[in-house]
Computed example of a mutant assay.
Amino acid sequence: MTTTFDIPKTSRAAVLTKHSEPLEIREIPVPQTLEPGALLVRIEAATVCGSDLHLWDGSLGGSQALDLPVIPGHEMVGKVIAFGDGAERDTFGTPLEIGDRICFTHASCNQCDHCRFDNQPTLCTNRQYYMFTNCERPPYLVGGFAEYAYVFPNSGRVRVPDEVETSWASAASCALRTVVHSFERIGKMNPWETVVIQGAGPLGLFATALADHLGAGRIITIGAPDNRLAIAKQYGATDLVSVAEHPEPEDRITAVRDLLGGHGAEVVFEFSGARTAFTEGLGMIKEGGRYMVTGQIDGPGKEVPVRPGFITRQQLTIMGTWSGHIAEYRKALEFMKNTHGKYDFGALVPNRYRLDQATEALTRMRAQEDIKPMLVPHGTEGI
């Protein structure tokens, strides 16, 4: 193991012990030796994802097995403080040095059919997850809401470009990389196509910017509140549909079709997570169109009525996207590196919170008072 730092014995972490209860600040053991291929990082920033919010309130249970207590957080940027043997390069061969900033993924096994045969590592049947893994067993530091984190040997990792601010990179490490994955699956954006984006949270806003960058001819972003729609406009939305002004699903379908002369859109992205969003999206899509569903989570109460014959008759292409892997992380960071002069990525992460304010950050996100709260475990200055 290579290090030029004294590795601390313990790390403060905000720990989920019971759903919807305040996170508990605990001292968590720091591994003193690393497996080959592993890294130890000092967390510089951890942004709050919608999945962290659903983890906290218990609604994410249908998506992934959970063994409390856990450390929430899977969107984070860490500075390397120690290398396991053979970990001195990122996934793409870029040399890493002590002090370099990296983003890193959940760890896929590289052995199952999804990893090796299908080339879909986000579906890995043996995946090691941050935020879902019990923090009372080694390697302990398996979530972003902590001062330090353990990078699994099989975790993809990518060095953050110097041009990309830490706060942006943290937000990119789940929200934007998932958007990138969704766009890659949906296919090419064409200048004669209309794209509807359901949701004006972090996913929907990043998607608005990416659709604009990729040349979509018309972009309709649906969401609320008004300050988020204002960012969508800055990011390239040609039209906005306010959920506050169109509170019912049928109102939103009508609003989109009115904008398009009674027609539907060629491409619809669901990034809102709202229970009714899927059936709404079906009402907004053009015959022969493409629909990407990314914002939905599984679980009781999420069922909606669907007429399969409508999908058949309209000849729709419907796909889903789960998470993203290291290639999408790198593409997300490259997008930020190349376009930060055009899109104000900092508008998504204006507020910083100490580790002991993690519950406040979650509460503010749930109330839509923050788009993307950011925890700064070592202090809020300078990030």
Rank of each mutant, 00 (worst) to 15 (best):
G295R: 02
G295F: 02
G295V: 05
G295N: 02
G295L: 03
Q296L: 13
I297P: 05
I297M: 12
D298T: 11
P300E: 14
G301P: 12
G301N: 12
G301Y: 12
G301I: 14
K302I: 11
K302P: 05
K302Q: 14
K302A: 11
K302Y: 04
K302S: 12
E303D: 13
E303M: 11
E303N: 07
V304I: 15
V304Q: 13
V304D: 11
V304G: 10
V304W: 08
V306M: 10
V306Q: 07
V306A: 10
V306F: 07
V306Y: 05
V306L: 14
R307T: 07
R307Y: 04
R307K: 05
G309S: 14
F310H: 08
F310M: 12
F310N: 10
F310W: 08
F310I: 10
T312H: 06
R313C: 14
R313A: 15
R313V: 15
Q314L: 11
Q314H: 11
Q315W: 09
Q315P: 03
Q315R: 15
L316E: 15
L316D: 13
T317N: 09
I318G: 08
I318A: 10
I318E: 06
I318N: 03
I318C: 08
M319H: 07
G320F: 01
G320I: 04
G320H: 01
G320R: 03
T321P: 04
T321Y: 06
T321H: 05
S323G: 11
S323P: 01
G324V: 09
G324K: 10
H325V: 15
H325I: 13
H325W: 14
I326M: 09
I326C: 10
A327N: 09
A327Q: 07
E328A: 15
E328L: 13
E328R: 09
Y329Q: 07
Y329P: 01
R330G: 02
K331W: 02
K331D: 09
A332Y: 08
L333G: 03
L333D: 02
E334C: 06
F335L: 08
F335W: 08
F335V: 03
F335Y: 02
M336P: 02
K337I: 00
N338P: 00
T339F: 00
H340V: 10
H340C: 11
G341D: 01
K342W: 02
K342T: 14
K342F: 05
K342S: 10
Y343E: 08
Y343P: 06
Y343R: 05
D344H: 04
D344W: 00
D344S: 03
D344K: 05
F345W: 10
G346M: 00
G346Q: 01
G346L: 00
G346R: 00
G346I: 00
A347V: 04
A347S: 11
A347T: 06
A347K: 07
L348N: 06
V349F: 09
V349H: 10
V349S: 12
V349C: 13
V349G: 04
